[in-house]
């Protein structure tokens, strides 16, 4: 796995701990929703190290509510690229809950969805090896505009509706890009 974050390939400090594995004593870890909801749920926060949870695409994001302000990361699973449920989960975390931690795309993560993922609030991407890693840096610039309005999105992609309103994107800038 390679981790793409903030426009760069980076090392991953996080460790995903499957349900049948013992919890490591130290270091940032990602657990399943089942583990978080289980008997040792509260215990997970006691070591004082950052905790993340991995939500599969059928699991409701609302289930995280009791823990959200203490979670540093939410990983959202894409079982297949056509399964778009995690897009809504990310949007709900950012827009409704104001979640400020990392939202990580895991599973079947394709470069063609990179711009969409960024715009709903994902900021880290676990990409399988051999998946044209170089194209991740450039694909975003293919269509650097979007219509939809979202005051929580922070991406290089500009909202056309907002730009029209504010006049913030000037004709000169458009020509320069051509």
């Amino acid at each position: 796995m390679s981790l793409f974050k903030h426009g760069e390939w980076t090392t991953d400090d996080w460790r995903f701990v499957a349900d049948d594995e013992p919890l490591p004593a130290v270091g940032p870890k990602i657990v399943t929703l089942a583990r978080l909801q289980g008997d040792d749920g509260e215990y997970l926060f006691h070591c004082g190290c950052p905790l993340g949870v991995r939500l599969e695409s059928g699991e409701p994001v609302e289930a995280l509510e009791p823990w959200l302000n203490r979670l540093s990361l939410v990983a959202l699973g894409f079982p297949a690229f056509v399964d778009g449920r995690a897009f809504s989960a990310a949007a709900i975390l950012r827009q409704r809950h104001g979640f400020a931690g990392e939202i990580r795309a895991v599973g079947n993560v394709l470069v063609d969805q990179h711009a969409f993922m960024l715009r709903v609030g994902f900021d880290a991407f676990e990409v399988a090896e051999g998946r044209a890693l170089e194209s991740w840096r450039t694909a975003l610039l293919d269509v650097p505009f979007a219509y939809q309005y979202d005051d929580t999105a922070s991406t290089p992609v500009q909202s056309i509706w907002q730009a029209r309103r504010s006049g913030s994107l000037q004709a000169g800038e458009l020509q320069a890009a051509e």
Partner: peptide, 10 residues
Amino acid sequence: WSSLHPEFSF
């Protein structure tokens, strides 16, 4: 609004 909508393309 629906053109390349980031949340509703899949």
